[in-house]
Simulated assay, not measured.
Amino acid sequence: MQLHNHIHAFILLLITTISAGAQPAVREIEFNVYGQYPVRNIEYRPIGESSIQLGEEPPAPVAIKTHSLARMGPYTYKGIEPIEFYNAKNQELVAKVTIPPDSDKWLLIFLKNPRYKSDPNGQLRYLVYPFNDSPSHLPADGLIFLNISGNALDGLLEDKRVSLGVGESGTYRVQESLPINLWARSFDGEKLLPALVKTYSFTPNHRYLMIFFPPVLTGSVDLDVRFLSESAE
């Protein structure tokens, strides 16, 4: 239980830190969505209150949903305020995210908030990680690792030694295939255990995001890995 609390606290801190660095400004944002687990019956208002006060017509809410294999969208938002997401049936606020100023194209990654179950009145149902999904940040034939597993990872990309700490890696150039061997420390810190051993194949002129979620099984270091591919054309 202590380990899972540590992982969940880390994820919350990471998302909060990214959102805290944002500088709100009136702009139009395009985003896709993705979820560690399927997200259904959720909607958002594509125009912020500040934009409505400036004369924008308030549009109808827009429903979103996530898929386990690909980005879903695109969706748009115009305003200053954080994007808020609601339960479509009872209008309960279930998630919100402040978009950093780095880009106007984002991938919003939904994770179940582990603190919601014990404190539903004080916590939102989902945490949302904003990933800069612009072509300048993740270009064609590029690969970025997003480590929100709660573990520091060490190993090899083919024959190149790497250390993947928390958050996003730099961009790696990829070709046809890439053997990945990553290891994590056991929970007592005594041993290194395999977290991911696999060879991935790549298609030219695509861009790739590999997300490391916390292990599904308690006590395991086997990563819950999602490998997102998108054509750069």
Rank of each mutant, 00 (worst) to 15 (best):
K191C: 09
F131N: 00
R161Y: 15
L138H: 01
S169W: 03
L157C: 09
R185W: 09
G142Y: 04
S149K: 03
H137K: 13
P120E: 02
R125I: 12
K191P: 08
K160F: 13
P120F: 01
R115N: 14
L193C: 10
V128H: 00
D159Y: 15
K198V: 13
L178H: 08
I109W: 01
T199R: 13
W183A: 09
T199C: 07
I109M: 05
K112C: 11
D154P: 07
L156H: 12
L143A: 03
S149P: 07
Y172W: 08
D119N: 13
S169L: 03
V128P: 01
V174W: 03
I148F: 05
P130D: 00
V162L: 04
S136K: 10
N132A: 05
S163I: 12
K117M: 15
L146E: 06
F145R: 03
A184Y: 03
S118T: 13
D188Y: 13
L156M: 13
R161P: 12
G167V: 15
L157K: 09
A152F: 11
P135V: 06
E168R: 12
Q175Y: 14
P135I: 06
R125V: 13
I144E: 07
L157N: 10
L124Q: 04
L108H: 05
G142L: 05
N147A: 06
K191E: 13
K112F: 12
F131Y: 04
G167N: 14
I109G: 02
S134W: 01
L182E: 04
P120Y: 01
A195N: 01
N151I: 08
G167P: 11
P179Y: 04
R185Y: 10
D159F: 14
L182M: 09
F131R: 01
